[in-house]
């Protein structure tokens, strides 16, 4: 099933530039409802307040990291089924394995292109 263009997407990254890049790509891909959070803690608050259909998160963030956010999402009955895409510069094999164990839906290594992001979304929502 292709991704619903009306679904709410949450972009989580402590860097404003990265949030803007991902949000721009989402807009160009036709997704109009994209929100942002600066870290895992802020993301959890938004996720619990609204009905999001997709999470795109960085790994390395202050306050609450992406991997901790992923674990928190997977441990929450209301949120655990939301697809979670990790977009990160943490490009060690151990990081990837840790994310897989925590239940990541897919994983993108920075720097990335719009095509890679689209391809990963297609895989997640096929």
């Amino acid at each position: 099933m292709p991704a619903d263009p009306n679904m709410k997407i949450l972009v989580v990254d402590d860097m404003s530039t990265m949030r803007r890049i991902v949000m721009n790509i989402m807009k160009q891909l036709g997704f109009a409802h994209v929100e942002e959070a600066e870290n895992g803690e802020g993301a959890l608050l938004k996720l619990r307040a609204g009905s999001f259909g997709f999470i795109i998160s960085d790994w390395n963030m202050p306050v609450m990291t992406g991997i901790d956010l992923l674990r928190a999402v997977r441990a929450d009955d209301k949120l655990k089924t939301i697809p979670f895409l990790m977009v990160t510069a943490e490009a060690q094999k151990d990081n990837l394995l840790e994310a897989i164990q925590a239940g990541v839906s897919n994983y993108i290594v920075k720097p990335f292109t719009a095509e890679v992001l689209q391809e990963k979304m297609n895989k997640i929502f096929k």
Binding site: M15, T17, R20, I25, N60, A89, K110, P111, T113
Partner: peptide, 16 residues
């Protein structure tokens, strides 16, 4: 233009 946007992710990598 989209390639320009994604190329700007260098800033995030440098900042980290």
């Amino acid at each position: 233009l989209m390639s320009i946007m994604t190329a700007l992710s260098f800033q995030d990598l440098v900042a980290q």
